[in-house]
């Protein structure tokens, strides 16, 4: 964990009656450094929050948006919950798998994209959709989805 990250985290403490409240935002800040939180970073967090490292790891492993392994430069997620599936999301996911040559959950060999599927993302009315990093792309069809994925650096 860089000193800058640590400083940013420390400014969050005052938002919560107990500093542990800042753990989720702190993990986001730590994760922003490398795209994932490794063992050492988890230990740094544990020290900063004065909790056992296992408690940090429990939290990391509980939430979908925290990563403990290296990730692709971009996350591409397809919502495969009901409303999206009814409108062809899984067909779209399969063609993206074929297009990228990876299965959901895997990263392309050039490290460009980690493909995944996700549960409902609140775009049911504009299904199917992609979440690319923190952006939503909605009302898609397969061609449009491929085009978006190809445009990623």
């Amino acid at each position: 964990m860089t000193p800058e990250t640590r400083k940013k985290i420390e400014t969050l403490f005052e938002r919560y009656p107990r500093k542990r409240g800042a753990l989720l935002p702190a993990i986001y800040l730590t994760q922003a450094e490398k795209g994932y939180v490794d063992r050492e970073a988890a230990q740094d967090l544990a020290e900063l929050f004065e909790i056992p490292p296992v408690a940090v790891w429990e939290v990391l492993s509980f939430y979908n948006m925290f990563y403990t392994e290296p990730q692709g430069r971009h996350h591409v997620y397809v919502c495969t919950n009901l409303s999206c599936s009814l409108r062809g999301a899984r067909t779209m996911l399969k063609s993206l798998e074929a297009h990228l040559g990876v299965k959901a959950g895997q990263t392309t060999s050039d490290g460009r994209v980690t493909l995944g599927h996700e549960e409902c993302l609140g775009s049911c009315g504009t299904a199917p959709m992609l979440r690319v990093n923190s952006d939503y792309h909605e009302n898609l069809d397969t061609d449009e989805a491929k085009r978006i994925v190809d445009s990623l650096e």
Binding site: I51, P52, V54, A55, W57, E58, S61, F62
Partner: peptide, 10 residues
């Protein structure tokens, strides 16, 4: 109060 054990994932 050593807290070595946890439950991972969900």
């Amino acid at each position: 109060k050593t807290g070595e054990i946890g439950v991972f994932a969900r």
